[in-house]
Design a protein around this nucleic acid. Structure first.
Lengths: 270, 270
DNA sequence: TCATGTGAAAAGATTCACAGCA
DNA sequence: TGCTGTGAATCTTTTCACATGA
């Protein structure tokens, strides 16, 4: 292995903190919904609720973009939609290629949200010769052999990888060599890329594992804690807690971590 | 709306930071690969490289779990695989339901990584009567009417939502009422859930928008970078840049529309 | 000798709380 | 009066650097 390059810090893009950038799409979505309902203005409190964050955070986020609100009133919806779109680079069109047209790749190709906001699927690419020419989402699949020319002919700078894990790095290398500088990786593998190339990953099993961690914690919370050491016991605990149907109650909240503290646990190694 | 119980202090076992929890699956994957190649031990440096993080972070992460390494040697691969699996709750089996068997739902159902590590697809559920009984990934799709009984009969505590955005909240409410306490949401919408329920979201268009943001930044960098007159707004940026050593990527502060420093935005009427 | 484990420092993100302006 | 915008305080995460122990 050893393809050299690993991740890179690469944060601070312009003055805007990375955490803020990651929330802008959320605000944009909420604003777009308001816009469609012809709501003219919105307060930080309302918008924050719609986006699932708290208002102080939202105001702080917006303060990095500039002063786009009106004190005592709120934000002009249309204006904010425009400003955030511009900040995110959505006022231009981004051609995207999807490499790996299996179940997932096909689902992505069919996903409407793609085209809606500034992104356009320029090509679907797969290594299987049998797929070449076959239409998926109204588009003929092209063979990997033509990857380089497709990228350059269409001026593609964003690539989506939905190949099996084993093929991902190779595909990634070819995409990068052909000029792609942003990659969205659905393959369950770590990609090595040179500096200047951004990679974001979407990984189903990682998300599930994080949920399982918290789930296990919840189960243990109600009953014993020491059970955590003994797998078989933890299982019984989990099952016991499974039927405790929760009482619903309005008010949403995202996720949250609690239980500070951090004393010594430890089970000695073998 | 407080239904009495706030989060229990639960000030007991390890207070593992959320950021660390999110990386454990990454380490586990890398370790599993090493295990398959029968590698007996690994150093923090090697493992970190395989997981795409730096070694200091990895060691700090592991220190929250306990002292599982051997100074001067490294970590025992098998032992670590076990410890992390246990910590993540993967030594038990988690039945999962997938609600919304469209393109994406079907792709998820077919996704192998699901079953591999502690997760088992207990049922596929869809609201379309025409789909009921139809096999997807070797499993008959069941109708939404039976959602509650499916959840309780199988002791499901983790649900995956891959419905259209419009149906997601309703499905979420039913899952939660039926006892699900962890949700992985693929629908492009913010879900409201009561305290105690975890939601994680996977959102293609958000990821693309984040990439577009950085991509736009890169494009501007080529042109403006050289002459980049740091806008007065970039005080924080300047300080950070002074410290970060060889970070390529610069900070593309060339683009200077307006800034947080109070000058007036552009045009754009209401 | 060598790589872990960890205090301490630095950087980053969130929350508080209120001044300031429409 | 009401809501934005933002310094300051707080909390979290990352990085540093080295004592520690196999």
């Amino acid at each position: 292995m050893a393809t050299g390059r690993t991740h890179r810090p690469a944060t601070r893009s312009r003055g805007i903190p990375e955490a803020t950038v990651a929330r802008l799409p959320l605000y944009l979505r909420a604003l777009t919904a308001l816009s469609e309902r012809s709501v003219p203005t919105v307060s930080s409190e309302e918008l924050a609720a719609a986006a699932g964050v708290n208002s102080a955070k939202l105001r702080k986020d917006f303060s990095y973009l500039g002063s786009y609100g009106t004190r005592g009133v709120g934000y002009d919806v249309e204006y904010l939609v425009y400003q955030i779109s511009r900040e995110l680079g959505l006022t231009q069109d981004w051609p995207v290629v999807i490499v790996g047209i299996g179940n997932l790749g096909a689902a992505l190709a069919n996903y409407g949200g793609f085209a809606s906001r500034g992104f356009r699927v320029a090509a679907l690419i797969d290594a299987d010769p049998a797929m070449a020419g076959q239409p998926v989402a109204g588009m003929p699949v092209q063979h990997t052999d033509d990857l380089e020319s497709i990228i350059s002919d269409n001026g593609v700078s964003i690539g989506v990888i939905s190949t099996p894990a084993g093929a991902a790095q190779q595909v990634c290398d070819r995409l990068v060599a052909a000029g792609v500088t942003s990659i969205l990786n659905f393959a369950p593998t770590v990609l090595s890329v040179p500096d200047g190339v951004d990679v974001r990953k979407v990984d189903l099993s990682i998300e599930l594992q994080i949920l399982a961690f918290h789930e296990q914690r919840k189960a243990g919370e109600d009953v014993a804690e020491a059970a955590a050491v003994v797998p078989s016991a933890a299982r019984a605990v989990a099952e016991a807690a499974a039927d405790s149907s929760a009482s619903v109650d309005g008010d949403g909240s995202g996720d949250s971590r609690k239980g500070p503290d951090g004393d010594v646990p430890a089970v000695m190694p073998a």
